[in-house]
């Protein structure tokens, strides 16, 4: 059973229908007691980093997520949900994140080092380069195209948490990140056709395997 964390941010319909399509049982809840009963957590999110952290704080979900992941419960963050896993973001003023992974979140500069202007958001289908093929989300998958929509991007000095990247202009975009049972995708797997659906299936399988351990 997957618990989709509902904290009032963004469109949860597409994640729900994606899990339905792969016949994965889930609950959608903002209540820590209900989410506690699940085997893995999915943190979605569309909107601003600051609003999201405020919502998570008000609902008591920050402490819950930290405690559950400390106890080894698998967690996947999607899009903004992935960015929230990191230490801080400069979106609408410096805001602390969940701090589960090392790194910070900054806006795309919109200009390359050579001074060429490029479009922000990074929107559309971009191909992945796998940096860690054995990362649980990537198992058995080929480097395919996935759908991105984001204006902010993770920067980290710790290459160990980068499982896959995409190149946008002169920026290496962390696309799949993770350490142990905590992972995330900058793109929307539920909107990324077969490659994305494959990663959701991999996460569900990882959760199932964790239950048996």
């Amino acid at each position: 059973m997957i618990g989709i964390i509902d904290y009032g941010m963004g469109n949860l319909h597409s994640v729900c229908s994606a899990l339905k399509r792969i016949e994965q049982p889930y609950i959608l809840s903002g209540n820590p007691e209900e989410l506690y009963e699940t085997d893995g957590l999915l943190l979605p999110g569309v909107g601003s980093f600051k609003d999201a952290m405020n919502e998570l704080k008000e609902t008591g979900l920050i402490d819950f997520i930290k405690k559950e992941t400390e106890n080894g419960k698998p967690l996947i963050g999607i899009c903004l949900g992935m960015q929230l896993l990191f230490e801080e973001s400069t979106e609408n003023g410096l805001t602390k994140g969940l701090g589960l992974l090392p790194g910070r979140v900054d806006r795309f500069s919109g200009v390359t080092a050579e001074g060429k202007a490029y479009k922000v958001p990074h929107m559309g289908w971009n191909n992945l380069h796998f940096l860690q093929e054995d990362q649980p989300l990537l198992k058995g998958l080929d480097e395919g195209y996935v759908y991105f929509v984001h204006s902010f991007v993770v920067q980290t000095d710790d290459r160990n948490v980068l499982a896959a990247a995409a190149q946008y202009e002169d920026v290496e975009v962390p696309a799949v990140v993770g350490r142990d049972h905590i992972m995330g995708t900058q793109f929307h797997p539920e909107k990324s056709s077969e490659t994305g659906m494959g990663m959701l299936k991999n996460f569900c399988r990882f959760v199932e395997e964790g239950k048996q351990r």
């Binding site: 597409s14 229908s17 994606a18 339905k20 759908y147 929509v149 077969e194 659906m197």
Partner: peptide
């Protein structure tokens, strides 16, 4: 449509 589609 949303229930069927895995693209935006």
């Amino acid at each position: 449509v949303a229930a069927e589609l895995a693209i935006p």
